[in-house]
Nucleic acid binder design. Structure first.
Lengths: 153, 153
DNA sequence: CGTTTGACCTCAAGCGCTTCAGGTGGGAGA
DNA sequence: TCTCCCACCTGAAGCGCTTGAGGTCAAACG
């Protein structure tokens, strides 16, 4: 997985993908848009070789991406990590704020998901009633669907 | 909001957007990909005029889209509605299955969201500890972050 | 020693929209 | 009547990736 040449470990894109959970295509894409990189290449083959420093950063990015964090927030995260957000200790505050914002974002998404589930459950029930030819059940569900629809933003 | 000419109500794209919750751009896009339409136009201005039949369908699509349903499932939904899924009563079954699949999809998403929230909360706490210079708190949180990370797919 | 395999490369297109740029028709006010 | 504005139009580009086509390099196999 890693090769030691001198003191620097070097990781292939495939391994970097396994480590970070980001697809190889995404790794190339992140490099292209300047979120990571430029990644050094193997002399003869031209293949990417991720060095120890990069590996840790990209592993972290994998986690953040997995939470649905925006590319801009990932950029800020790296900037704060490197101490170029403000200088000094203000960056811990920026980091906290960044994560708190994202917690709120997820929280709101969860709440919206519950509403959506409710709506879809009722729709499933409605068609289930129709499937059985249960006209009465159908009539009971229709107004509930209408109510659930209101919550769907 | 609606104009009566004869017996057909005609709705502008702006109003259709308000009714359905889909943006004007999305309405044009759905037409372009053949999910809806073609929508009749006003003779002189060339503006879209949605007729009563289309209005109901698009309103329904708005709800489905709001739940995150895929374009393909929306296509199937319309097909089953029109009775071209199978013929006869098999379509109620198809509809039920379609909605049940989507309930499961949402359910899984909700579960993943909880894991993500947990991870982000811990990260926020970690940086909060650093912000306060609380090295001890930091040490308590680090292993928890590591554990939460495992769940992130 | 030629060939096959596999990991990797780049470039282009597609997905589901959103946003933007540039243009038209028609009604209202000066 | 002239002009302004508003609602609408089309087409193209952007976002964050994913998928696919077509080509290179190096180690392994017959």
């Amino acid at each position: 997985m890693t090769t030691t040449d001198g003191d620097t470990a070097s990781v292939s894109i495939q391994d970097m993908s396994k480590i970070s959970g980001l697809s190889e295509a995404t790794l190339r894409y992140y490099e292209k848009i300047g979120l990571i990189g430029p990644v050094p290449r193997d002399e003869s083959s031209g293949h990417r070789r991720y060095g120890g420093h990069a590996v840790e950063r990209i592993e972290a990015l994998g986690c953040l991406r997995a939470t649905g964090m925006s590319v801009q927030d990932m950029r800020d995260y790296l900037r704060f990590l490197d101490g170029n957000g403000d200088g000094g200790d203000g960056n811990a505050t920026r980091m906290r704020e960044l994560f708190e914002r994202n917690v709120s974002r997820i929280q709101e998404e969860i709440e919206r998901m519950h509403v959506r589930r409710r709506y879809l459950e009722l729709k499933a029930q409605l068609w289930s009633a129709r499937e059985r030819g249960d006209a009465e059940g159908e009539n009971r569900i229709v107004p509930e669907v209408a109510r659930a629809r209101e919550g769907l933003r």
